[in-house]
Design a protein around this nucleic acid. Sequence first.
RNA 1: UGGUCAGUAGCUCAGUGGUAGAGCCCUCGGCUGUUAACCGAGUUGUCGUAGGUUCGACCCCUACCUGACCAGCCA
Length: 465
Amino acid sequence: MTAKRSVREVLTSPKIGSEVRIEAWVRTKRDSKAGLTFLELNDGSYFQNLQIVVSATLPNYATEIPKLHVGASVRVLGTEAQSQGGKQSVEIQALEVALVGACDPAVYPIGKQKMTYEYLRDFTHLRSRTNTFSAIARVRNVLAMAIHGFFQERGFLWLHTPVITGNDAEGAGQMFRVTTLDVAKPPRAEDGSVDFSQDFFGQGANLTVSGQLEAEAYACSMGAVYTFGPTFRAENSNTSRHLAEFWMVEPEVAFADLDDNARLAEDFLKHLLRTVLEKCPLEMEFFKQRVEPGILDLLNSVLENPFKRLTYTEAVEILIKSGEKFKYKVEWGIDLQSEHERYLTEQVFKAPVILTDYPKGIKAFYMKMNPDGKTVRAMDVLVPGIGEIIGGAQREDDIELLKGRIAEMGLHAGPLDWYLDLRRFGSVPHAGFGLGFERLVQFVTGMGNIRDVIPFPRTPGHIKI
RNA sequence: UGGUCAGUAGCUCAGUGGUAGAGCCCUCGGCUGUUAACCGAGUUGUCGUAGGUUCGACCCCUACCUGACCAGCCA
């Protein structure tokens, strides 16, 4: 049988005159009743479609070609040729065209017409057949591999942290309960509460909200590690930036402080942007034309300029002196609101901003205390358009200070005893951060809604597939 | 969870207190190495649901359903 080639292979390294087999789906069709049909096929391998020129002299032209509607799958045997048309350099002169699977246009939800993102969210299993969603899928894939590439080149170990966790105080919002108990009639303790000692794990269990604490354990033996996997939050958040299930990247490095952490975050983001611009030029051009006109300028400016670095205290001063009327008043000690973060990154600096040294009252128990006793070594990386894309910190490595913080915040020390062991035995300064993968994909593509950059989004009230 | 906005043909949208429109899709005809093809003709509707006001409601009012956006939480 004639060798199969992908649309990408034919368009990027044509072998003019050679015979090929193409297996793909019809994106659009133009008939010339004078004796030609032009099929545009796509197989997901490439942004561009491959044009097939079908002559009316083919034996099944009158019977099969009229059935080739948008969405139909086809197998084409043909010859690679220089195109006479202006919009592509290579095309296939068909020798045989076979309909593999028909697609009835009367009921097919995906057509050549304009469709809203909202409409396509009802067809998550079909939307990757559109230009936009197949481009997103390829960019997402390139970004995922760029993440592994960045860390692997630097000797980081990819750590598989558990999806089911016994930690109930990871401190990042509502968790999903994991149980095999009969939900209708769970066993009860004497005080009437559900008796999770009879549950599968002999205690309560949840889906993870972060792999950070486990990553710290391995960083304190393997040196530098990263997690990259799914994360779950049961918050009732209905925004364009929140999912109940999303992917998160969390590097953790031993013998590292906050400066090392900030440098790593900047190098990391720039590596990812550089890789996508290099590997997905057609997709990025499409996003510029159809999604966000300024996207290429934005990404290039992020790449070319050093990230602005300043402390929380300096940021608060800038915001107060700006004279800008904010909905929420700025004063030292408050958690910065989206409007404040956006003002800094979009109006003041017009570049990504790394804020460090936040008041201890608004940050987690594990962050390292500064000598001033008021601030901790936390950092947030803010980017234009999205806001916070990375949150991280140097961790508290002094066991007494850490115990004090746990008590101060009213947490139970017992379940965290293993975490204290990391400070009890060969403690080391270490730091890390978390990157929301979908927010990265949003930032890179310019897509406005996070539900459109993950294949099958989970949000409150929505888990159809 | 709160605030705002929206729901009209399979899709994208317009519309007026007095009996429902366009483009795309689809079918037919014409034309062309076409390319978001083009030109002409034709088919397509419980106007989100339930009440109410009115001689008369797609339009005004109320409730509900669904969705989006913004905010909070965060990544």
